[in-house]
Amino acid sequence: MAGIAASDADVVALLMRQHGDIRNLFDEVERTSGDERRDAFRRLVRLLAVHETAEEEVVRPFTRSNVPGGEQVVEDRLTEEREAKEVLSRLDGMDTDDPKFLTELLALRLDVMAHARAEERYEFIHIRRHADQDRLASMASALKAAEAMAPTHPHPGTESAAKNIALGPVAAVVDRDDESAPDDGGDGEDG
């Protein structure tokens, strides 16, 4: 347990671990079917939505003001996130056993993995260079707090800290309320 706690005290290590978790969940969704696939996909949607929202609230403002060329780095990442949220939102409404689902999922996976590599190359390396250990730890704490309040489903168009802070808590309550509602066996679309 100490290894997890130590990595969670560094925002870059925490985000890198989450990137690994995301890759593993994509693998699980692809290799399963039926209820198992639906469950794995729900976990993937939740992790992606929470992860991206927290990055938008904690990491992007730091990058924007502390990394050389940070404004463009942030704009590039936000564009990638918006596109991924749109695909994820489409997938979130599909039946995971629909033959088109895996094709769409693969496209999403390629986009998400390219986005993660871009974050690691153009953002995370610079965060390490421009933040001391105390700042990395405080950002990790802020990231965990943001994740606790983040929506658990994609909301395209909220790719900024201000929009996330304004809309995130409301969306999070609605998302979490939907998750706790009994499954009526319907198609998952409430309207």
Results as ranks from 00 to 15, higher is better:
Leu47Ile: 02
Arg60Tyr: 13
Arg17Asp: 10
Asp111Gly: 15
Asp111Ile: 10
Leu25Ala: 01
Phe101Thr: 11
Asp187Lys: 14
Pro154Met: 04
Ala49Leu: 09
Arg135Ala: 15
Ala161Leu: 10
Ala9Leu: 08
Val59Leu: 15
His130Ile: 01
Gly185Ser: 09
Met94His: 08
Arg129Thr: 07
Phe101Arg: 06
Ile22Ser: 02
Met1Thr: 03
Arg82Gly: 00
Leu15Arg: 12
Gly188Ser: 14
His130Lys: 04
Ala171Leu: 15
Asp178Met: 14
Met139Trp: 01
Leu78Ala: 14
Ala13Asn: 06
Leu15Glu: 09
Glu56Thr: 10
Gly70Arg: 09
Asp8Pro: 00
Lys144Tyr: 10
Ala146His: 06
Pro154Glu: 03
Ala6Asp: 07
Glu30Ser: 13
Pro61Val: 09
Arg46Ala: 05
Val174Lys: 11
Lys163Tyr: 00
Met16Ala: 12
Ala148Arg: 09
Ala146Gly: 11
Ser7Met: 14
Ala171Tyr: 15
Pro99Asn: 05
Leu25Lys: 01
Ala140Arg: 03
Arg176Cys: 03
Leu136Gly: 05
Ser33Asp: 15
Leu44Arg: 03
Arg121Cys: 09
Ala9Phe: 00
Pro154Asp: 05
Lys100Val: 00
Arg38Ile: 08
Glu147Asn: 10
Ser89Gln: 06
Met94Lys: 09
Glu30Phe: 13
Met139Pro: 04
Leu88Pro: 00
Pro99Leu: 07
Glu104Gly: 15
Arg60Gln: 14
Ala114His: 14
Asp76Glu: 14
